[in-house]
Design a protein around this nucleic acid. Structure first.
Length: 347
DNA sequence: GGGACATGAAGAA
DNA sequence: TCTTCCTGTCCCG
């Protein structure tokens, strides 16, 4: 499922597609009956906080400011939720956002031939919410939450979330203090949305690898600098994700371990001929879903185990940092950000 | 057609 | 810690 970066990307797509426009709303599946109450309202804004999406609706464009009624639709995609878009050329830069595997994709390509009017696209029966504007439409399926809230309700949700690294108003210190005060494992804390909002299973595994941290280290055993380092590493990683829609955490020199092993044995160098702008998914992660494969840095077999009800992946050799007394060796240096944050290479 | 699995989280026990 | 919910895909028989 989408981690926080996806939801921010989605909010931007919805703002661009429907922002400040009058929209039709419906629930083809029938399980979001409140859609009818908002039909014909103006979608004033779309905002992401962690993995939560808030769509602000006001009654009508012609309503003067004053104290307009605002209703918020809160959407949480959960593990399976996704949005699909269709519309005029250039309406949405994305066809589908959400669940890991493709959705309307196939069908939509057929409909995108140009012969089929997007207005005639029949929603899937599972479509919880359809939003249709002058330029296009967006269909939501499979969310774990889709509900209407007032301003207080929206605020209550936000208040129980930890800081979101993708938000300019995020309070890094809240995250750092919370981690340093906890005896819970860092691998569990990172999945707790009250501690830090927007992190999911991929970013958890990957950022811990990059920090060389053992996922089981209690938060309070870490130094303030280490925890700040986790945050500072997450910000650009997630910004990249929000911008491109893809999670890439590997540094270029670690992307092709198989080739590097061959290269080393032959004592030759090879020129990379891949498009540097597109990192293939199978080269995008250090540890996520790479259990039993060799570590990209040290070739040790990547392991996996259950942690916080999800599978965590880690390198038992690289991720040995367990406390403030951690030592670095030449072969296993500190994470890039720990050495020189400002020069750490980003994807 | 059935079961496992997937970037998630709430609520019960 | 366990169960449940949301959807779609893939692999198997």
């Amino acid at each position: 499922m989408p981690e926080g970066h996806t939801v921010h990307r989605l909010a931007a797509a919805l703002r661009a597609g429907f922002g400040e426009q009058r929209v039709r709303t419906s629930s083809p599946q029938g399980r979001f009956s409140e859609a009818a109450d908002l039909d014909g309202w103006v979608l004033a804004d779309a905002e992401a906080v962690g993995k939560h999406l808030f769509l602000a609706f006001v009654p009508d464009a012609s309503v003067d400011a004053g104290a307009p009624v605002t209703r918020y639709v809160r959407v949480h995609l959960g593990l399976y939720g996704s949005w699909t878009f269709a519309g005029e050329p250039g309406f949405a830069t994305v066809h589908a956002i959400g669940a890991p595997r493709v959705r309307i994709g196939e069908r939509e390509e057929g409909l995108d031939d140009g012969d089929v009017d997007w207005r005639r696209i029949v929603p899937r029966p599972t479509t919880r919410l359809r939003i249709a504007g002058p330029q296009g439409l967006a269909d939501l399926t499979g969310p774990t939450a889709c509900e209407v809230l007032d301003a207080a309700g929206r605020q209550a949700v936000i208040d129980r979330l930890g800081p979101d690294p993708l938000r300019a108003d995020a309070d890094r210190r809240r995250f750092v203090d919370r981690v340093l005060a906890s005896r819970t494992a860092i691998g569990v804390l990172l999945m707790n949305q009250d501690v830090i909002a927007g992190i999911g299973n991929i970013y958890r595994a990957e950022v811990l690898f990059r920090a060389r941290l053992d996922p089981t280290v209690p938060g309070r055993d870490l130094t303030r600098g280490m925890v700040e380092g986790i945050w500072e590493d997450l910000v650009p990683l997630m910004e990249y994700g929000a911008r491109t829609g893809r999670i890439v955490t590997t540094q270029p020199e670690h992307r092709d371990i198989e080739a590097r092993i061959v290269e080393r044995s032959r004592g030759t160098r090879q020129n990379g001929d891949e498009d540097p702008d597109v990192v293939p998914r199978e080269k995008s992660f250090y540890v996520y879903h790479r259990q039993t494969l060799p570590c990209r840095v040290c070739a040790t077999e990547i392991r996996s185990a259950d942690m916080a009800a999800r599978t965590v992946f880690w390198c038992p050799r690289c991720q040995t940092v367990r406390s403030r007394r951690a030592t670095w060796t030449r072969e296993h240096p500190a994470a890039p950000w720990a050495l020189a944050p400002e020069r750490s290479e980003r994807p």
